[in-house]
Design a protein around this nucleic acid. Structure first.
Length: 571
RNA sequence: GCGGGUGUGGUGAAGUGGUAUCACCUGAGGUUUCCAACCUCAUGUCGUGGGUUCAAUUCCCGCCACCCGCACCA
């Protein structure tokens, strides 16, 4: 970062703190790294960004909002792969209390201990009895997962169940798949969003709000049938050109439909969410010239993903990934299905039923039952999956469990079966746009903060979009007396009573000072009640960005602020 | 986690082994006050814990936080 950039960053951070937008959390207790408060102005800003994010996705018509607990049982995150990816397994020495990495202790005993799970490591430690590096004792406690996920316990005492505070919101959408599938009356595609907190116990949080330990995120999981060609309408994005960096190569400028056409974007639904994401970011107020899409290189992509694009935004910290849009295939649903035995599939009905006559080998219950006893069910399953009727007896049949049994001719019978198949179960694929809300808010502020000069003095304003401005309007009596104060207070109360509108009444200091205060926290409109207001019921409305003023009847002001029509008065 | 730097009102700074100064901001009053004007008055500070000392914001040590490298990292 340049000297100038760093100095600007310091000034911006001072302002954010001074005006109660974003400030270090728990500061009177010495602070906590990687955590921030959204203050008197910032709290509302965050809420409006969240609200716009939600409305943007729900407006698609086939997306619902859900909300799941942040405390998540161990097995959920084990199934998702987070325990393996995000954790180191630690084990404490019972004698000296020193915690060591379980896989490091076993390095001299096993080829690649870092690939082992928690239980396997525990067993290996009992078996190989490695020495404690600090006291050389061999008494070890339980293996526990540590590190990037915050761990906790569901329930008290030794009977408590191991859990984590979630590192992302996505898993809730997968664990709810059956319920969502019913809600959408078993028709794909559909999606579910969740906006909320995620937690990662980062080793060293850095760069302000860019890497946090507790962060706001919003994720959308969109489930599709991989065999159905998606029908997305890209016509309104044909003219919108974005900077794109495909697969580690240099940037090219292309529209999203063209990038899809050329094969650079590998799936239409990924392209669709890139376009919709760009729409949202621009609507929130991100500078389009400082937005680009970068495709993950194959080496950087998770093994299950087939395409992944980041929306990156340029700000004081350079280009920062703020949104990841990934085609995750069937990975997540399959993982939860494997771990739970629950069916997480969708039904694909065929246009025409298939009738099938089939010769099936099965068991003769009367003889096979006594012969195989509790194993008879497994034998039946293995037999029915055979492609042909065995020609010689006895023969060796391999079961699913891996063991083999000897089957005699008297154990089996051959049936002709008539089957009508109307469709099939399949695991839907999922496309996941994941948003780092704090990073987006940071860049909204970074892009909106404008330092200029006014009458030779430095002057700063926050040119936030009226869509997300924390306060919609300021009402300023030119003097707080003579009836101007009463008119102004009434207007202020009228504005505050409107749904979704927040007004700020400010009567202290000169009028110029009050305009400056309003500009600094991004209030789009200032209404000044002056002497003329007392005579004809009009007031001056001032625009934040160009300081233009027009006179508007006070009676009309609330409606114009409420319906967003104020800017038309300025043309 | 390693190395380097930094912590003084809300913000930005000055300074000191005898509990601290300035500007801006903020608040009250005055000024027929439309872009941080002016006058009077007021609120508010040495990150934190321990040590040395009669006395520590100042010296020493630990911790916490912030910034910069490195490492780590959806």
């Amino acid at each position: 970062m340049s000297e100038d950039g760093m100095a600007r960053l310091e000034r911006l951070n001072s302002m954010l703190k001074r005006r109660s937008i974003i400030l270090p959390a728990f500061e009177i207790h010495g602070g906590a790294a990687g955590m921030y408060d959204f203050g008197a102005i910032g709290g509302r800003l965050r809420n409006r960004v969240n609200q716009m994010w939600l409305e943007h996705w729900l407006s698609q018509g086939d997306v619902v909002e859900i909300n799941c607990p942040t405390v998540t049982p161990y097995s959920v995150l084990e199934a998702s792969g987070h325990v393996g990816e995000f954790s180191d397994f630690l084990v404490s020495c019972s004698k000296c209390g020193e915690a060591s990495r379980a896989d490091h202790l076993l390095e001299s005993h096993l080829p690649n201990p870092d690939s082992l799970g928690k239980d396997e490591l525990g067993a290996a430690i009992v078996k190989y009895q490695p020495e404690c590096p600090s006291c050389h004792d061999i008494q070890w406690g339980e293996v526990s997962a540590q590190n990037l996920m915050f761990n906790t316990t569901l329930g008290a005492g030794s009977g408590g169940r191991e859990a984590f505070i979630r590192p992302e919101t996505a898993q809730g959408m997968f664990t709810n798949f059956q319920s969502l599938y019913r809600h959408f009356r078993q028709r794909l595609p559909f999606g579910a969003v969740q906006i909320g907190k995620g937690y990662r116990n980062e080793i060293s949080p850095r760069q302000g709000m860019i890497r946090l330990r507790e962060f706001n995120m919003g994720e959308l999981e969109y489930f599709i049938d991989p065999e159905v060609e998606p029908s997305h309408d890209f016509s309104c994005w044909k003219e919108d050109i974005f900077s794109m960096l495909p697969d580690g190569q240099d940037a090219v400028n292309l529209s999203i439909p063209d990038a899809l056409e050329s094969g650079m974007i590998r799936h239409p639904t990924v392209a669709w969410f890139m376009a919709r994401t760009a729409d949202l970011l621009l609507k929130l107020g991100i500078d389009g010239k400082r937005l680009r899409f970068r495709q993950h290189e194959s080496t950087e992509m998770a093994h299950y993903a087939s395409d992944c694009w980041d929306a990156e935004i340029e700000g004081s910290y350079g280009w920062v990934e703020c949104v990841g849009i990934a085609h995750r295939g069937c990975y997540d649903l399959e993982a939860h299905e494997t771990h739970t035995g629950q069916r997480l599939k969708a039904w694909r009905g065929w246009a025409e039923s298939v009738e099938r006559k089939r010769t099936v080998v099965t068991i003769d219950g009367a003889t096979a039952g006594p012969a195989f006893r509790s194993g008879a069910g497994d034998v039946k399953q293995a037999l029915e999956e055979l492609d042909s009727v065995p020609s010689t007896f006895p023969f060796i049949l391999k079961l699913h469990g891996g063991e083999s049994v000897e089957v005699l001719e008297e154990h089996i019978k051959v049936e002709e079966r008539h089957e009508v198949i109307n469709g099939e179960w399949f695991t839907p694929h999922v496309v996941e746009p994941a948003f780092g809300i704090d990073r987006i808010i940071w860049h909204l502020l970074d892009h909106a903060w404008t330092e200029t000069e006014k009458n030779g003095e430095p002057y700063s304003l926050l040119a936030l979009s009226p869509n997300i401005a924390p306060i919609d309007v300021a009402v300023l009596p030119l003097m707080e007396k003579g009836g101007m104060d009463i008119l102004a207070k009434n207007l202020h109360l009228e504005l505050c009573s409107l749904s979704g509108i927040l007004s700020n009444y400010d009567a202290s200091g000169s009028i110029g000072r009050r305009y400056a205060r309003a500009d600094e926290i991004g209030i789009p409109w200032c209404v000044t009640i002056d002497h003329q207001s007392l005579d004809d019921g009009s007031a001056t409305v001032r625009n934040r960005d160009d300081q233009e003023q027009v006179r508007v009847s006070i009676e009309e002001i609330a409606a114009l602020i409420h319906n967003g029509g104020m800017s038309e008065r300025f043309s």
